[in-house]
Simulated scan of single mutants.
Amino acid sequence: MRRRLSPEARKLEIVEAAERLLQAKGAGVRVEDVVREAGVAKGTFFLYFPTWDDLLVTLRDRLVAEFDAAYPLPTEVDGPVDWPAVVAWQARAFLDFAAARQGIGQALFHSDFAEHRPLADNGAARIAAVIRAGQEAEAFGPVDPEPTARLLFAAIDDAARALAAGAERAATMAALDELLRRALAPAA
């Protein structure tokens, strides 16, 4: 017999079931798999998520919020910030976060869903904010923050894919660190 749950708790059950399955199996998961895992009827799924993509948007927003909470950006309130170190730390954090969530990451960020429902901020806005703060502190050179951030995020994302495919971590990290350092170096 199913236990009675509040609508929020039932929705969370569905979200968590989908998250577990996508992490384990990647983009091949379907509604039928999620409702079986969550122990709910298909109609219950569609009560909370009118389409499969609506569930994926919820999961993607949840993952982004989890990253933001786990790796908050520093501020100069508590003292000077080493902005080049922040960029390197954020890159490593992203790589570690992506490595721990390969299945779900593939489904949410590198699938047909990601192509037709792109994320407004794929992480580049966070990097652009760090670049602007680093420029204000005179730690970075005079680059245009938004396009530079998009290019750097593309490099970080590609490094994550390379690591997932078996690239050697130390060499990949050294190359990424050097790229970040050179791209943002203060003008000589």
Rank of each mutant, 00 (worst) to 15 (best):
A41R: 07
G28F: 00
R30G: 09
I14Y: 13
G28R: 08
K11C: 13
L22Q: 05
E32H: 04
V35P: 07
R10K: 14
R30C: 02
A38E: 08
A38D: 11
E19Y: 06
R36A: 14
K42V: 09
G28V: 07
L12E: 14
V40S: 02
E19M: 10
E13M: 09
R36D: 10
A18F: 09
K42H: 05
A38F: 07
E13Q: 14
E37D: 09
K42D: 06
K11G: 11
E16H: 06
A27C: 00
V35N: 10
V29S: 07
A24Y: 00
G26K: 07
A17T: 05
A17C: 08
V31L: 09
K25D: 13
A24R: 15
A38V: 08
G28H: 01
A17Y: 06
A41E: 12
V34I: 15
L12W: 00
E32Y: 00
G28P: 00
A9Y: 03
R30D: 05
I14N: 09
R36S: 07
K25E: 15
R20V: 08
L12R: 12
E37G: 06
L21T: 05
Q23V: 02
I14L: 15
A17E: 05
A9V: 09
G26A: 14
A27G: 06
K25Q: 14
G39F: 06
R20A: 15
D33L: 03
R30K: 11
G39I: 05
V40Y: 03
D33Y: 03
E19D: 14
